[in-house]
Design a protein around this nucleic acid. Structure first.
Lengths: 229, 229
DNA sequence: CTAGAATGTGAGCTATCACTCGGTTTGGCT
DNA sequence: AGCCAAACCGAGTGATAGCTCACATTCTAG
């Protein structure tokens, strides 16, 4: 397998249009193989073949397999962050709406985010822990959205039960992320996306001690569910 | 790497005491390397070396690397299940206690369970999806405890908000598992184990629509926290 | 048009992997 | 003591992985 040599320092950055096309093709191929066949089958030779470039070209832009996957992880995290901000925006979290509406909006954004490329997300989450460079990329992004949640909790503090914002952020983000993630992976038949959003809203509002029961939107099938998944 | 040969059918079962010691050493070594260096570094040669046996002996009892990891996963799941049952027991979930006490008990058991061997659990969860034999082992166990939760929800149905037991089971088990898991992995400094149990109890009771605020046990440091972690 | 930089190529090197097989050692029988 | 199966051994096999390097091709600037 991979000899444990000292890592080459880094690689060229593409400047011509041609090179950018190549780099893009390589990243796309990496994503495709990761999703379709998993990390183990994602050899650099296979990636190059699928991308329609030679193995040499791959190593001109990515110094190692780890660097390749890390680059993909970074791209994925970045685009996810962009999507999340686009959908909720800091504005939405600070606007004049009710707490329930804001929570619901945030959860819908999270669900939509995961639906966008669930399979890639899963593979990256599985493999990223063993590639330090990629951990940084993903952490950087998730920390940023965690900060947004904590800020919101603090801004709404007197409408919630007494809580430690840092702790609550951890509990909420982890729960919402995990349930969404697993629902998209396993797709239990009794849990469609609309129900998922309802349940997560319950979960969050209940935890925050917000008395007002959310107006349940379940069983309005077909309207919302069609938009996701 | 591994040639994709057809799998050998199975291997001998140890009968002499000597052989059982060998098998045990191999499984221990596998767990150790998985925890310390991850799946990628966990080669069969490395396992044999660490176990102090020859590679030939390993293949006398495990027909392939997959079978080896699957066996470890099974052992791990089985012992986890045993621990969980020992700590809560079906009796505890059906006893005459308050809902809050039961929820708290269950959560404490979950936390204790994860603390027991969090690192091995993490690695197995990461790698198990690519080893079908091991998925079965883990699923078998987690399904069993999921069934217990659903049964409890049904037995307490009229004391809770209206809910679909299957959906609620999914949401609760996933959340509690994820938060516990992540807390043990990342050990955020502001979240000690006692707080974790408190917060998760809040989360679950809030979701279930149980009005009674739990008597908070936070800031009774040193008493409970010393027992875990 | 031409030089040189940027980009692309792929056969092949080496380390490592999962796994086999012919042989030696061990331990429970009688 | 002597036998035989169970247990153990580890150099070796075939395959594949990550990655390099000498060379070919394309682009761009003067």
């Amino acid at each position: 397998m991979a000899p444990a040599r000292p890592k080459p320092p880094s690689r060229k950055h593409p400047t011509q249009r041609r090179a950018k096309v190549t780099v893009d093709a390589i990243l796309r191929a990496t994503a495709h193989i990761l999703k379709a066949e998993g990390f183990a089958a994602c050899s650099t030779n296979a990636v190059a073949r699928r991308a329609g470039v030679s193995i040499g070209s791959l190593y001109q832009y990515f110094s190692s397999k780890e660097a390749l996957v890390a680059a993909l992880a970074e791209q994925h995290a970045e685009s996810g962050q962009a999507l999340l901000l686009e959908m909720v925006g800091l504005a939405a979290l600070e606007g004049p709406q009710t707490i329930e509406a804001q929570v619901r909006r945030y959860i819908e954004a999270m669900v939509r985010l995961h639906a966008d490329d669930a399979e890639l997300h899963r593979v990256l989450m599985q493999q990223v822990p063993s590639i330090p460079e990629a951990v940084a990329a993903v952490n950087r992004v998730s920390n940023r959205s965690g900060d947004a949640v904590r800020a919101w909790l603090e801004s709404r503090r007197d409408e919630l039960r007494p809580l430690d914002p840092a702790v609550a952020t951890f509990v909420l983000v982890t729960s919402v992320e995990a349930v969404t993630h697993l629902q998209l992976m396993e797709r239990p038949k009794q849990l469609d996306v609309a129900t998922l959003v309802d349940e997560l809203t319950w979960l969050v509002l209940g935890y925050l001690g917000v008395a007002s029961k959310p107006a349940r939107r379940r069983r309005q099938q077909g309207r919302r569910s069609a938009r996701f998944v």
